[in-house]
Structure formats: C-alpha cells, structure tokens
Amino acid sequence: MNPADRGGPLLAQPLRPPSAGRFAAYLGLFVLGAVVAVAGALVQPAWFPGGLLLALAGAAGLFLGGARAVRSRAGAVAPAAGWMVAVVLLTASRPEGDFLFAAGGGSYLFLLGGMALAVICATLGPGRQPDGADVRHGK
C-alpha cells in the first residue's frame, strides 16, 4: 500500500550515482560546452553585435538542449561548467601578452550573458519527478 493512501508523507527516493552512459553524456556535454565557449569567443568580437548574439544563442541552445536531452537540470549544468572553465582559461593573459578577450563591452556582455543564460537554462530544465503508474503529478 502506498504511504500517501494512508495519509502519511511520501518518502523521497534516494539519489543514485549516474550510470556509465549518463556519465559519458555529461562528460560529452562538458567538452561540447568548452568548444562552444571557444567558438563564441572567436565569433563575438568579429561581427558586433550580431556575433555576440550568435555566440549567446549557441550557448543557450547547448545549455537548454543538454537539459532536454538528458531530461535533468544537470544536463544544462554540465555544458555550462565546460563553458565557464573554457572562458576563464581564455581570459587569462599569457606572458607573451596574448589574450583573447579585450577589455570592451562586448566581451563583458559575452561573459555575463553566458553566465545568466546558464542559470536560466538550468532553472528551466526538468526537475526530479517520481516514476510509476500510481504517481500523481501536480496539475
């Protein structure tokens, strides 16, 4: 008998470690996030403001697509983490004086806009829902 039928609280399902396939999907999304960050860093200053919008649209598509593909919010967090790591590594200047991001408004919009999109897409991703035929989803 279901505890909810007796008036008792529903017990939350314990978290399980991800399967090997899900872990591989998260790792692939992490790497894809880094690739999108590098591509966006190269495109965003080229055709301002169109390049900036294109770079942010690519990042948003990856974040939201990852959440939908894996059917969890972690699907948006994995590419966002890869995006953040790549962007932070690209902002560091080298001893030779080379850098990829100039100190301009477009670069700051790319950095802050990408972070905001990561939070928005992770929030829009589907949360944990119980499975089974006797589960009532909120309507």
Rank of each mutant, 00 (worst) to 15 (best):
Met1Ile: 12
Asn2Cys: 09
Asn2Ile: 09
Asn2Gln: 15
Asn2Ala: 09
Ala4Leu: 14
Ala4Gln: 15
Gly7Thr: 12
Gly7Leu: 10
Leu10Ser: 15
Ala12His: 14
Gln13Leu: 13
Pro14Ala: 11
Pro14His: 11
Leu15Thr: 13
Arg16His: 08
Pro18Thr: 05
Ala20Thr: 03
Ala20Pro: 00
Ala20Glu: 07
Gly21Arg: 09
Arg22Ile: 03
Phe23Ile: 00
Ala25Gly: 02
Tyr26Ala: 00
Leu27Glu: 03
Phe30Tyr: 08
Val31Gly: 03
Leu32Ile: 02
Val35Asp: 12
Ala37Glu: 07
Val38Gln: 12
Ala39Ser: 02
Gly40Tyr: 00
Ala41Gln: 05
Leu42Tyr: 06
Val43Glu: 09
Gln44Ile: 00
Gln44Leu: 00
Pro45Gly: 03
Pro45Asp: 03
Ala46Arg: 06
Ala46Leu: 08
Trp47Ala: 05
Trp47Lys: 00
Phe48Asn: 07
Phe48Pro: 07
Ala55Lys: 04
Ala57Ser: 02
Gly58Gln: 00
Ala59Val: 03
Ala59His: 07
Gly61Ala: 08
Leu64Gly: 08
Leu64Glu: 09
Leu64Trp: 14
Leu64Ala: 15
Gly66Trp: 10
Ala67Trp: 05
Ala67Ile: 01
Ala69Thr: 01
Val70Arg: 08
Ser72Trp: 12
Arg73Cys: 04
Ala74Asn: 12
Ala74His: 14
Ala74Glu: 11
Ala74Trp: 15
Ala76Met: 08
Val77Asn: 05
Ala80Arg: 11
Gly82Phe: 02
Trp83Asp: 12
Val85Asp: 11
Ala86Cys: 14
Leu89Asp: 13
Leu90Gln: 10
Thr91Tyr: 15
Ser93Arg: 15
Arg94His: 13
Pro95Lys: 06
Pro95Cys: 08
Glu96Asn: 14
Asp98Tyr: 09
Phe99Met: 08
Leu100Thr: 07
Phe101Arg: 06
Phe101Gln: 14
Phe101Ser: 14
Ala102Trp: 06
Ala102Tyr: 12
Gly104Trp: 05
Gly104Met: 03
Gly105Ser: 13
Gly105Ala: 13
Gly105Thr: 13
Gly106Lys: 03
Tyr108Asp: 07
Leu109Gln: 10
Phe110Met: 07
Leu111Ile: 14
Leu111Thr: 05
Gly113Gln: 02
Gly114Ser: 09
Met115Glu: 11
Ala116Ile: 03
Leu117Met: 04
Val119Cys: 11
Ile120Met: 13
Ile120Gly: 00
Cys121Ala: 15
Cys121Asn: 04
Cys121Phe: 09
Thr123Ala: 07
Thr123Gln: 06
Leu124Tyr: 04
Gln129Lys: 05
Gln129Ala: 14
Pro130Lys: 05
Gly132His: 07
Ala133Ile: 00
Ala133Asn: 02
His137Pro: 01
His137Thr: 04
Lys139Tyr: 04
